[in-house]
């Protein structure tokens, strides 16, 4: 990014991240800077490692090489205590909601508050109901996770991720399975959190139209590297083959549609070069 930016402007800095999973190089000396107080979107073909990247940022996974600093601390080297201290300031929306099935919606959203604060019950109640109202599910507070639809569960998970007003929120595909009405509310919510509380947001998503409304900056990753980045309004027509293929949805281009595989004809049992 901008070389003149002071180090403090960047909440997350990734340098030379290299990770090999089951023999596949998921990241290959990846560099990325995520600015503080902004909404940053990470896009890329399915299976390029967007979820894996978020897992690296939160220290759930460690790379084989490279540095990841979040708020000045090098995540792979943190002790368990220091890592947990950092995580208290990070909200995380799982790709599959991951609600605690033992507790109802209210208790799920209240869970981080109950674990890390000694707030009086009245205050917890107010905070939780405010967040549930923001995602349109105040009325569902007493339902169990098994009684929710997929889209509702994601909104509850979203409320849980933001209940603490964390310093950083990582959203893994927040728009999947959410209807257009709720989508608008969620977009507004992400924007408001960012503007009023200055919360840094990182979102992984595939919906360029939605991202245009909220993101300040987009990274496109493919083949283990950042292949394009820039302003959401203009990135699609920056002329590079990567963005042309990705945003144009073409099968041919630098991003392979196929997961690496052997020869197709051979796999189907056809003789080589035969007709």
């Amino acid at each position: 990014m901008n070389a003149a930016a002071s180090p403090d402007d960047m909440l997350i800095r990734i340098r030379g991240l290299t990770t090999v999973l089951s023999g596949k190089k998921v990241f290959d000396a990846l560099d990325m800077d995520i600015p503080r107080g902004k909404v940053t979107a990470i896009m890329g073909p399915s299976g390029t490692g967007k979820t894996t990247l978020l897992k690296h940022i939160t220290g759930q996974m460690r790379g084989d090489a490279g540095q990841i600093t979040v708020d000045g601390r090098n995540v792979p080297e943190l002790s368990r205590e220091a890592l947990y201290e950092l995580r208290e300031k990070i909200g995380y929306l799982f790709q599959n909601s991951a609600l605690l099935t033992d507790y109802d919606v209210f208790e799920n959203v209240a869970f981080p508050l109950r674990q890390h604060t000694k707030l009086p019950e009245v205050l917890i109640r107010n905070l939780v109901l405010t967040k549930l109202q923001a995602v349109g599910l105040r009325g569902a507070a007493q339902l169990m996770p098994s009684e929710l639809s997929g889209g509702m569960a994601r909104r509850v998970a979203l409320a849980r991720a933001i209940v603490f007003d964390p310093m950083l929120i990582l959203y893994d595909e927040p728009f999947v399975g959410i209807d257009p009405i709720a989508l608008n509310q969620v977009l507004k919510l992400i924007r408001t959190l960012n503007e009023t509380l200055g919360i840094t947001s990182v979102l992984v998503a595939h919906e360029l139209d939605a991202i245009k409304h909220v993101a300040d900056h987009i990274f496109l990753i493919a083949n283990g590297k950042v292949v394009a980045q820039g302003d959401p309004k203009t990135i699609a027509d920056d002329g590079s083959p990567w963005t042309r293929q990705f945003f144009g949805g073409e099968a041919d281009g630098p991003v392979p549609f196929q997961y690496p595989a052997g020869d197709y004809a051979e796999a189907l049992g056809f003789p080589r070069g035969g007709a």
Partner: peptide
């Protein structure tokens, strides 16, 4: 992922 969710909520 409930175990992972707990880890992430510190």
């Amino acid at each position: 992922d409930q175990i992972a969710a707990m880890e992430l909520m510190a």
